[in-house]
Design a protein around this nucleic acid. Sequence first.
DNA 1: GCCGTTTTCGGCCCGACTGTTTTCAGTCG
Length: 579
Amino acid sequence: MALSNQQLAAIFSDIADRLEIQGEVVFKTRSYRVISENLAALPRPVEDIWREGKLNEVPGVGKAIHDKIDELLRTGKLEFYERLRAEVPDGVVDMLRVSGLGPKRVKEIWSTLGVMSLSELEAAGKAGRLRGLPKMGEKTELKILAGIESLKRRATGRMRAGDVLPIALQMREVLRAAPGVLRVEYAGSLRRGRETIGDLDFVAATTDPAAVMSLFRSQPHIEEILGAGETKSSVRLQNGLQVDLRAIDPSVWGAAMQYFTGSQAHNIRVREIAQKQKLSLNEYGLTAEDSTKLTFDTEEALYARLGMAWIPPELREDRGEIEAAQSGSLPRLITRADLRGDLQMHSTWSDGAADVLTMARGGIALGYEYILITDHSQSLGIANGLTPERVRAQRKEIDAVNRQLAGEGLVFRVLQGVEVEIKSDGAIDLPDDMLAELDLVQASVHTSLAQPRERITERALNAIRNPHIDILGHPSGRLINEREGGDFDWEALFHAAAEHDVALEINADPARLDLNETHARRAVELGCHLTISTDAHHPGGLNQIVYGLSVARRAWVTPETVINTWPLDKLLAWAASEV
DNA sequence: GCCGTTTTCGGCCCGACTGTTTTCAGTCG
């Protein structure tokens, strides 16, 4: 039975939870948390590495964890884990999700009161049985009950970055207006460009912490104030998002931004490096053994003092960036300015909201040199997909738009493509001679995503082998927080895409972000080209490219790999040379 | 549990806030 990296990661995270409740030493539980994160971020299937006998090369794998992974992959089960699950009931683990409850209190509540589920916890709280336990009084009891309530209301744990960034930008403007404030930025996972955000972190450099704290806590749309200190406050917004603010002295800006940007795994490594240099690192800077303080007003200065190049936030996950920063071998990550065009968008010819000319104007406004119109093909009836006749009619309109733009003296080209359906039996929804007339062809799976691995993989491979198909669009088909993508054999798919030189899309729609960062990194490792495109359905949608860029940067992607950084002539020559 | 240009044993990042406490444990990030 095959276990995915994500499934293995979830098991080790669950083991860490249950061991913590049992009171196991923190260093042991930390090891399980570390391996959980490392497995989740691993660009290749653990199973492949295991088969090659190279499990020990995975960071965080020692003898004990090696044997556990081995047992899981051999038998699909883990004796140790089964025992642990019997010892600590699932309902007890659930209680960890309540804000304000950690392993110590959960263990106390469980062992003293026999509470074994969230509903029993709620009943115990309402009956006043929680107060009186060690270190717990009336306030703690009320906090736990409030935590249960908020857990019931909250839809999901993490929100899409696309839903958080607009809130962050607006809130940043508000906070910047507080008296005494010199700088405000968001840090945390949003700054690192993650696809989902657990909570939003702000850092404010100010000479008047009380003023910005007070302003922060008096904003509208706040449901609950979770904490209110002199330099740190936390609130929960009505949409469930938790927002934290730290106020710091302007002189420590660099150290504070480094600290609050994280990730935790990255910070632990950076502090270990400081320790080896007899220095202690916190959010205020470095402290030497003789208590001398060093402050840093930029992150660059802090990293430099520790012997490293500045590390782009997107890379700060302890996935090799520390070593690269020490040896001066960090990648030159792709930026917005590298992109010369957007290769997936829709117009009113299918399910878009704007005509071709309007989409072109949108691309011009962003400084692009070209766009590719990729309306849906005929079998996607719900999206008004194009028949061959309508594809040819659209060509006339695109030619007219190009003539008009040229007449205005603009160096800009609208390319004609299509997002052709890969049908459930693997057939391509438009005939080859039709595809041959187009500038570039993108193929996508929209239906029958639940097919078994072999079947759905064969569909994608069939498209990749088609000499007219240049790009595989949103390869997995997932929708973040809505549905899983298809169960593709990614290694096979990437090898084939590299061989036939079919580019794989990083779809920048914040609901898709597909390929995701781990798949994108692996695809590049295996020699694939990528595109980063928005799938926009109106000109405003073109701005969502920033989310796709974040995925690419987190995947260590450099510009030359991405075909829409190429000049138009190179792009068209590549498309014409079918492999 | 993992890990190693000070270690194969003895370490393992660091601080704010809260609530229940007379000095600190628990939680969180």
